[in-house]
């Protein structure tokens, strides 16, 4: 579904990604784990054309997409839910969700998608009139995911969905993410919370200093000695 080949990305003179090659297949949950600053967010931003690569190719459903504008990427169903949520703070919950279905295809199914989002996150239904900026961190994350789902994603990329959220809500959010996957959306999950991410995913990649150093079935990675030692502290 998504295939990245030998990707290099620079910020000015500093190279952030070095020859990243990876793949996400339809209906999978794939996770990219790694420490802060490893280049995980940069990778997602490059996939969505917010950054440009200096070398390599990105393919989505058989088409090369690394020259497209960000809104064209969204229109194809490649959706990123950014780290830090980036919801529209002085708009209501409802308006945030409506803007998720801003593009024509998504707009045509607006009320249907909204119903699904409210089924996944009943808390949002109770707070449609509330300003998004006044929600708790966890609720904001739900809203960000809900807004992402409104865009009718084919591949949903989540950047650190558990960051800065109360543990109880983290569990709820992860449960919902899994539910979204069961309903047929492919997921690419970027996490510092290595155990939770690998526990949920089918496959995983470990990114260190902009390079992929390990990859494989999530279950195998969980048992891997290096990962246990460096990331799980066991």
């Amino acid at each position: 579904m998504l295939s990245i080949k030998d990707l290099d990305v620079h910020y000015d003179d500093v190279q952030v990604l070095h020859g990243v090659t990876m793949e996400v297949r339809a209906t999978e949950i794939v996770t990219i784990v790694g420490a802060n600053g490893a280049g995980k967010t940069t990778l997602l931003k490059t996939i969505t054309s917010i950054h440009r690569s200096s070398k390599g190719q990105i393919w989505f459903e058989g088409e090369r997409i690394d020259h497209l504008s960000p809104h064209h990427i969204v229109d194809r169903g490649l959706i990123r839910i950014p780290e830090g949520r980036k919801i529209f703070p002085t708009m209501s919950v409802l308006e945030n969700l409506e803007l998720g279905s801003y593009l024509p295809k998504a707009k045509a199914l607006r009320s249907e998608s909204m119903g699904k989002v409210f089924d996944l996150f009943p808390r949002l239904r109770e707070r449609t009139r509330q300003l998004a900026g006044t929600l708790s961190g966890g609720e904001q994350q739900m809203l960000a995911i809900g807004r992402g789902l409104m865009t009718l994603p084919r591949l949903l990329m989540l950047d650190e969905p558990s960051l800065g959220i109360a543990p109880l809500l983290v569990r709820e959010i992860f449960r919902t993410i899994r539910e979204v996957n069961h309903q047929g959306t492919t997921l690419l999950l970027v996490e510092q919370n290595v155990f939770n991410a690998l526990d949920m995913a089918h496959r995983g990649y470990v990114l260190e200093n902009g390079k992929i150093v390990l990859q494989g079935e999530a279950h195998d990675l969980l048992g891997n000695e290096y990962i246990k030692e460096s990331y799980l502290g066991i």
Partner: peptide, 8 residues
């Protein structure tokens, strides 16, 4: 960034 992610 939020605007970009919804396809604006």
């Amino acid at each position: 960034e939020g605007a970009l992610t919804v396809g604006i």
